[in-house]
Protein backbone atom coordinates (compact mmCIF):
# COMPACT_ATOMS: atom_id res chain seq x y z
CA UNK A 1 0.00 0.00 0.00
CA UNK A 2 1.25 3.45 -0.86
CA UNK A 3 1.69 5.78 2.10
CA UNK A 4 -0.87 8.57 2.03
CA UNK A 5 1.58 11.37 1.40
CA UNK A 6 3.89 9.59 -1.03
CA UNK A 7 3.49 9.80 -4.81
CA UNK A 8 2.91 6.42 -6.52
CA UNK A 9 5.63 5.56 -9.02
CA UNK A 10 3.24 4.72 -11.85
CA UNK A 11 1.95 8.29 -12.03
CA UNK A 12 5.19 9.70 -13.32
CA UNK A 13 4.21 11.21 -16.66
CA UNK A 14 4.17 14.32 -18.78
CA UNK A 15 1.89 17.30 -18.11
CA UNK A 16 -0.82 18.53 -20.43
CA UNK A 17 -0.59 22.29 -20.19
CA UNK A 18 -4.19 22.82 -21.43
CA UNK A 19 -5.99 19.48 -21.06
CA UNK A 20 -9.41 21.09 -21.50
CA UNK A 21 -8.51 21.91 -25.10
CA UNK A 22 -8.12 18.29 -26.04
CA UNK A 23 -11.11 16.62 -27.65
CA UNK A 24 -12.02 13.11 -26.70
CA UNK A 25 -14.02 12.42 -29.85
CA UNK A 26 -13.41 13.17 -33.48
CA UNK A 27 -14.77 12.30 -36.90
CA UNK A 28 -17.90 13.21 -38.83
CA UNK A 29 -20.05 10.61 -37.09
CA UNK A 30 -19.59 12.01 -33.62
CA UNK A 31 -19.14 15.65 -34.54
CA UNK A 32 -21.94 16.07 -37.06
CA UNK A 33 -24.23 13.10 -37.51
CA UNK A 34 -24.82 12.38 -33.83
CA UNK A 35 -25.71 16.00 -33.03
CA UNK A 36 -28.04 16.11 -36.03
CA UNK A 37 -29.72 12.90 -34.91
CA UNK A 38 -30.13 14.40 -31.45
CA UNK A 39 -31.73 17.53 -32.95
CA UNK A 40 -34.04 15.40 -35.07
CA UNK A 41 -35.06 13.38 -32.00
CA UNK A 42 -35.80 16.51 -29.96
CA UNK A 43 -37.73 18.22 -32.78
CA UNK A 44 -39.61 15.03 -33.53
CA UNK A 45 -40.54 14.61 -29.87
CA UNK A 46 -41.79 18.15 -29.58
CA UNK A 47 -43.72 17.80 -32.83
CA UNK A 48 -45.33 14.61 -31.51
CA UNK A 49 -46.31 16.38 -28.27
CA UNK A 50 -47.74 19.28 -30.27
CA UNK A 51 -49.74 16.91 -32.47
CA UNK A 52 -51.10 15.08 -29.45
CA UNK A 53 -52.04 18.35 -27.81
CA UNK A 54 -54.08 19.36 -30.84
CA UNK A 55 -55.86 16.06 -31.29
CA UNK A 56 -59.56 15.81 -30.66
CA UNK A 57 -60.24 12.45 -29.17
CA UNK A 58 -63.22 11.23 -27.24
CA UNK A 59 -64.04 12.64 -23.83
CA UNK A 60 -63.52 10.57 -20.71
CA UNK A 61 -67.23 9.69 -20.60
CA UNK A 62 -67.08 8.25 -24.13
CA UNK A 63 -68.93 11.11 -25.75
CA UNK A 64 -67.65 12.87 -28.84
CA UNK A 65 -67.50 12.12 -32.54
CA UNK A 66 -68.83 8.70 -33.52
CA UNK A 67 -68.94 6.87 -36.82
CA UNK A 68 -71.86 7.83 -39.00
CA UNK A 69 -73.69 4.61 -39.95
CA UNK A 70 -73.34 3.89 -43.68
CA UNK A 71 -77.09 3.68 -44.13
CA UNK A 72 -77.39 7.21 -42.80
CA UNK A 73 -74.84 8.70 -45.15
CA UNK A 74 -76.61 9.44 -48.41
CA UNK A 75 -73.61 11.15 -49.98
CA UNK A 76 -71.36 8.10 -50.21
CA UNK A 77 -68.46 10.30 -49.12
CA UNK A 78 -66.83 10.64 -45.75
CA UNK A 79 -68.58 12.99 -43.32
CA UNK A 80 -67.51 16.61 -43.30
CA UNK A 81 -68.99 20.00 -42.54
CA UNK A 82 -68.44 21.16 -46.13
CA UNK A 83 -71.58 22.05 -48.03
CA UNK A 84 -73.09 18.97 -49.67
CA UNK A 85 -71.43 16.48 -47.31
CA UNK A 86 -73.01 14.37 -44.58
CA UNK A 87 -72.41 16.06 -41.23
CA UNK A 88 -70.07 14.24 -38.83
CA UNK A 89 -72.07 12.23 -36.31
CA UNK A 90 -71.65 12.71 -32.59
CA UNK A 91 -72.86 11.37 -29.28
CA UNK A 92 -72.98 14.03 -26.57
CA UNK A 93 -74.34 14.36 -23.05
CA UNK A 94 -77.35 16.49 -22.29
CA UNK A 95 -77.41 18.82 -19.24
CA UNK A 96 -79.87 16.43 -17.58
CA UNK A 97 -77.49 13.47 -17.73
CA UNK A 98 -78.80 11.76 -20.86
CA UNK A 99 -77.16 11.48 -24.26
CA UNK A 100 -78.11 12.51 -27.75
CA UNK A 101 -76.82 11.16 -31.05
CA UNK A 102 -77.09 13.46 -34.03
CA UNK A 103 -77.86 10.75 -36.57
CA UNK A 104 -80.89 9.70 -34.51
CA UNK A 105 -82.50 13.01 -35.49
CA UNK A 106 -82.27 12.35 -39.23
CA UNK A 107 -85.57 12.70 -41.01
CA UNK A 108 -86.15 16.29 -40.04
CA UNK A 109 -84.29 19.48 -40.98
CA UNK A 110 -81.81 20.50 -38.31
CA UNK A 111 -80.10 23.63 -37.18
CA UNK A 112 -76.93 22.70 -35.29
CA UNK A 113 -75.74 25.71 -33.31
CA UNK A 114 -72.52 25.93 -31.28
CA UNK A 115 -72.69 28.37 -28.38
CA UNK A 116 -71.46 29.21 -24.89
CA UNK A 117 -72.91 31.39 -22.17
CA UNK A 118 -69.77 33.54 -22.09
CA UNK A 119 -70.09 34.30 -25.80
CA UNK A 120 -71.82 37.66 -26.28
CA UNK A 121 -72.73 37.16 -29.97
CA UNK A 122 -74.19 33.75 -29.04
CA UNK A 123 -76.43 35.39 -26.47
CA UNK A 124 -77.39 38.05 -28.95
CA UNK A 125 -78.50 35.55 -31.62
CA UNK A 126 -80.11 33.04 -29.27
CA UNK A 127 -83.43 34.95 -28.94
CA UNK A 128 -83.75 34.80 -32.75
CA UNK A 129 -83.14 31.05 -32.76
CA UNK A 130 -85.63 30.58 -29.92
CA UNK A 131 -88.19 32.69 -31.75
CA UNK A 132 -87.74 30.77 -35.01
CA UNK A 133 -87.99 27.43 -33.23
CA UNK A 134 -91.04 28.43 -31.19
CA UNK A 135 -92.90 29.46 -34.33
CA UNK A 136 -91.83 26.53 -36.57
CA UNK A 137 -90.94 23.69 -34.23
CA UNK A 138 -93.16 21.26 -36.12
CA UNK A 139 -90.98 21.71 -39.23
CA UNK A 140 -87.44 21.63 -37.93
CA UNK A 141 -85.46 21.21 -34.76
CA UNK A 142 -82.46 22.84 -33.22
CA UNK A 143 -79.53 21.04 -31.64
CA UNK A 144 -77.68 23.55 -29.45
CA UNK A 145 -74.15 22.40 -28.64
CA UNK A 146 -72.66 24.11 -25.64
CA UNK A 147 -68.89 24.30 -25.59
CA UNK A 148 -67.25 22.97 -22.44
CA UNK A 149 -69.43 24.52 -19.74
CA UNK A 150 -70.98 22.78 -16.79
CA UNK A 151 -74.49 21.41 -16.82
CA UNK A 152 -75.80 23.90 -14.23
CA UNK A 153 -74.59 26.87 -16.25
CA UNK A 154 -76.17 25.41 -19.37
CA UNK A 155 -79.49 24.69 -17.65
CA UNK A 156 -79.67 28.22 -16.19
CA UNK A 157 -78.96 29.79 -19.54
CA UNK A 158 -81.45 27.57 -21.34
CA UNK A 159 -84.15 28.35 -18.82
CA UNK A 160 -83.55 32.09 -18.95
CA UNK A 161 -83.56 32.26 -22.74
CA UNK A 162 -86.40 29.76 -23.15
CA UNK A 163 -84.44 27.16 -25.13
CA UNK A 164 -86.93 24.30 -25.45
CA UNK A 165 -84.98 22.34 -28.08
CA UNK A 166 -82.32 19.64 -27.52
CA UNK A 167 -79.16 20.89 -25.85
CA UNK A 168 -75.93 18.91 -25.52
CA UNK A 169 -72.53 19.67 -24.05
CA UNK A 170 -69.27 19.21 -25.94
CA UNK A 171 -67.27 18.64 -22.77
CA UNK A 172 -63.78 18.48 -24.29
CA UNK A 173 -64.35 20.54 -27.40
CA UNK A 174 -63.69 17.55 -29.66
CA UNK A 175 -66.91 17.88 -31.63
CA UNK A 176 -66.34 21.59 -32.15
CA UNK A 177 -62.85 20.80 -33.38
CA UNK A 178 -64.07 18.12 -35.78
CA UNK A 179 -66.81 20.39 -37.09
CA UNK A 180 -64.23 23.16 -37.69
CA UNK A 181 -66.50 25.64 -35.99
CA UNK A 182 -66.13 29.15 -37.27
CA UNK A 183 -64.09 28.06 -40.28
CA UNK A 184 -60.62 29.62 -40.55
CA UNK A 185 -61.12 31.96 -37.58
CA UNK A 186 -62.39 29.20 -35.25
CA UNK A 187 -65.07 31.01 -33.32
CA UNK A 188 -68.59 30.80 -32.04
CA UNK A 189 -71.42 31.14 -32.63
CA UNK A 190 -71.34 28.78 -35.57
CA UNK A 191 -74.47 27.37 -37.19
CA UNK A 192 -74.95 24.49 -39.63
CA UNK A 193 -78.19 23.80 -41.48
CA UNK A 194 -78.72 20.08 -42.20
CA UNK A 195 -81.43 18.74 -44.46
CA UNK A 196 -83.57 15.70 -43.68
CA UNK A 197 -80.71 13.42 -44.83
CA UNK A 198 -78.22 15.01 -42.45
CA UNK A 199 -76.40 16.76 -45.31
CA UNK A 200 -74.95 20.22 -44.69
CA UNK A 201 -76.76 22.73 -46.87
CA UNK A 202 -75.67 26.03 -45.32
CA UNK A 203 -73.29 27.38 -42.69
CA UNK A 204 -73.19 30.67 -40.83
CA UNK A 205 -70.09 31.66 -38.86
CA UNK A 206 -70.81 34.48 -36.45
CA UNK A 207 -74.11 35.75 -35.04
CA UNK A 208 -77.24 35.26 -37.12
CA UNK A 209 -79.86 37.90 -37.67
CA UNK A 210 -83.50 37.07 -38.35
CA UNK A 211 -82.71 37.38 -42.07
CA UNK A 212 -79.66 35.09 -42.15
CA UNK A 213 -81.50 32.58 -40.00
CA UNK A 214 -84.46 32.62 -42.41
CA UNK A 215 -82.08 32.18 -45.37
CA UNK A 216 -80.44 29.19 -43.76
CA UNK A 217 -83.75 27.59 -42.87
CA UNK A 218 -84.99 28.15 -46.41
CA UNK A 219 -82.05 26.10 -47.71
CA UNK A 220 -83.23 23.10 -45.71
CA UNK A 221 -86.81 23.54 -46.82
CA UNK A 222 -88.15 25.47 -43.84
CA UNK A 223 -89.85 28.56 -45.18
CA UNK A 224 -92.17 30.98 -43.46
Amino acid sequence: MTPRNELPLDEVSGVEERPQNRREWSGALRSLILPLLLVATIVGGLYYVEQRRGSSGRAADGTGIVTLPADKNSTGRSPSTDIGRAAPDFLLATPDGGTLRLSDLQGQPLLVNFWASWCTPCRQEMPEIVRAYDTRKDRFTVVAINLQENAAQVRDFAQEFGMMFPIVIDSNGGVGEAWHIGGPVKGIPASYFLDVSGVVQARVFGPMTAATLADGLAKIGVVE
Binding site: S56, S117, G173, K186
Partner: peptide, 16 residues
Protein backbone atom coordinates in the same frame (compact mmCIF):
# COMPACT_ATOMS: atom_id res chain seq x y z
CA UNK B 1 -70.20 37.60 -11.96
CA UNK B 2 -69.38 36.65 -15.53
CA UNK B 3 -67.22 33.93 -17.04
CA UNK B 4 -64.73 34.05 -19.87
CA UNK B 5 -62.74 31.32 -21.60
CA UNK B 6 -58.96 31.29 -21.42
CA UNK B 7 -58.24 29.60 -24.76
CA UNK B 8 -59.71 29.88 -28.19
CA UNK B 9 -62.86 27.83 -28.62
CA UNK B 10 -62.85 24.04 -28.32
CA UNK B 11 -59.39 23.69 -26.83
CA UNK B 12 -59.28 20.26 -25.16
CA UNK B 13 -57.67 21.85 -22.09
CA UNK B 14 -60.12 24.72 -21.98
CA UNK B 15 -60.20 26.76 -18.78
CA UNK B 16 -62.87 29.28 -17.91
Amino acid sequence: GTTAPVFAVSNPNQLQ
